[in-house]
Design a binder for these strands. Structure first.
Length: 210
DNA sequence: AGGATGATCGTCT
DNA sequence: GACGATCATCCTA
């Protein structure tokens, strides 16, 4: 079992060119992708500025058979994008307040997704703090609603967005975390799901450092 | 540090 | 008309 080949450009002093993960990255097993996304760079172009965060927490949602996955309740206008090809954003509003960022994965007609749950700031931190009304440090983006607010990701702007183009919103290779630094556990906020799905260890997070 | 509670609206029955 | 892949605030210690 081998990790997807994540290659990164050598660091350069000039403005970085987008190096988005290609569609093949997203056309694989959901849980492998959720694992591999840890350490990757989430990039958003916001008000002419590039905001970048290191992904530190994800959850896999496994499609039809997963009663915690939206698509398991049927194909609707909201869930439609998950039934399409991989490499697109599925952004929806929860609790009337929070935008959730998911990446559609797996083959077409196999409606799986990975929820991005947390990031750490790499570029544009000052703007992220401003978006978060002064919150900083671990409180800046350690939750799915927090990171979308910090990065300016909304459903209106990015639902159904192609993340393989390298414009607007995409994911780039970053550092690869060692397995020893990765923890798994049950997913958050899905108590309504069947026990076998509610308790499945499909949440991935980087162990707290420093 | 941690538990309870209210916020707020798109989506589906 | 109900409820949710949550968060911030307001308490109590």
């Amino acid at each position: 079992m081998s990790a997807f080949e994540l290659t990164s450009e050598a660091p350069s002093s000039g403005p970085a060119q987008p190096t988005p993960l290609e569609r093949a990255f997203y056309a694989r097993d959901t849980l492998e992708i959720a694992r591999d996304l840890l350490g990757c760079r989430l990039v958003v172009e916001c008000d002419g500025e590039r905001l970048v965060g290191r992904i530190t927490e994800t959850e896999g949602y496994l499609g039809f058979a997963d009663t915690a996955c939206h698509s398991s309740h049927g194909r609707t206008p909201r869930t439609e994008v998950m039934f399409g090809p991989p490499g697109y954003a599925y952004v929806y509003l929860i609790y009337g307040i929070h935008d959730m960022l998911n990446l559609v994965v797996g083959p077409e007609d196999d409606p799986c997704a990975v929820l991005i749950r947390a990031i750490e700031p790499l570029e544009g931190e000052a703007s992220m703090i401003a978006h978060r009304r002064g919150k900083k440090g671990r409180e800046l983006a350690n939750g799915p609603g927090k990171l979308t607010q910090a990065l300016g990701i909304t459903k209106a702007r990015f639902n159904r967005h192609d993340v393989c183009l390298g414009e607007g919103l995409w994911v780039e290779p970053g550092e690869r975390f060692d397995d020893a630094d990765v923890v798994t556990g049950p997913r958050i906020g899905i108590d309504y799901a069947e026990p076998e799905h509610r308790d499945a260890p499909w949440r991935f997070l980087v162990k707290r450092r420093k």
